[in-house]
């Protein structure tokens, strides 16, 4: 096969080659083009819930993480309308949860925060919900602070698919949707989670926090303090094409 005839689509006017089975975001990241995203993680089947990666494909809005790449597709991403949408979604998430960054160990390494920085979000703007979400500090090595949950389901997926445990699940509906743990007591200490689990590492925000190692890297020198997420995400992106999809 001649590699020159790899199929491609257009992203903001630039040609993006793709492998069959790739989604738009996978192909874009591989090709060095950033599309903002939160619940998408290259190692997991796309979830499609945060909607930060919403693009317009042939004029129709779609989540880039679940949209299969197709030859000839014309995709818009870096437009004022779409970035405005993304800003509003970040604002909605900040208003929904209780995100007190100054006291969060994840600050500087937090994807939600980094998206806010990169998109220029200065305030949640909306009325804060101030939902009551008690912290679970029962486990000796892991803290669960539900106040910061964005319901991306990455820990649920990691625990089921990688750790083979099913420690987490989402429950409830609408604004009452919440993360729960697999224990009759409702306490993390009564689950079989281990500090080495993928589920512990994968949280993009500050819900699942390892105890005893707090502030090892000082604020100001952390991942997204050093480099904006739009640049960091490209550096992290798998260079060789992958073909996972939902």
């Amino acid at each position: 096969m001649n590699m020159d005839v790899r199929p491609s689509f257009l992203l903001d006017g630039e040609e993006i080659p793709f492998e069959p089975g790739q989604t738009v975001i996978q192909a874009a990241l591989t090709a060095g083009h950033y599309i903002p995203h939160l619940c998408y993680h290259p190692e997991f089947v796309p979830h499609g819930s945060c909607k930060l990666c919403t693009v317009k494909a042939n004029g129709r809005p779609a989540a880039a993480c679940t949209l299969p790449a197709q030859a000839g597709l014309e995709v818009e991403s870096e437009t004022e309308e779409l970035n405005d949408l993304r800003r509003t979604l970040v604002q909605m998430l900040f208003a929904e949860g209780n995100h007190f960054c100054p006291a969060c160990e994840k600050s500087g390494n937090c994807v939600l925060q980094a998206l806010g920085y990169d998109l220029g979000v200065m305030t949640a703007g909306f009325r804060h919900f101030f939902l009551d979400r008690p912290v679970d500090a029962s486990h000796p090595d892991i803290l669960l602070d539900f106040n910061r949950c964005v319901l991306c389901k990455l820990c649920v997926r990691a625990s089921e698919e990688v750790d083979g445990k099913g420690v987490f699940s989402l429950a409830g509906r609408g604004i009452s949707r919440r993360l729960i743990v697999s224990a009759e007591s409702g306490r993390l200490a009564d689950t079989d989670i281990a500090v080495t689990d993928k589920a512990v590492e994968v949280c993009p925000v500050g819900v699942i926090i390892r105890k005893h190692i707090g502030f090892q890297t000082p604020i100001g020198r952390r991942r997204y303090d050093v480099r904006p997420i739009s640049a960091q995400a490209l550096e992290d992106a798998p260079r060789k094409p992958e073909a996972r999809h939902g």
Partner: peptide, 18 residues
Amino acid sequence: IAMGACAVTGGLPAQRNH
């Protein structure tokens, strides 16, 4: 102009909200 985390989000004082 709202300056700082407390003016923008409620901040530390708002930790009493629950």
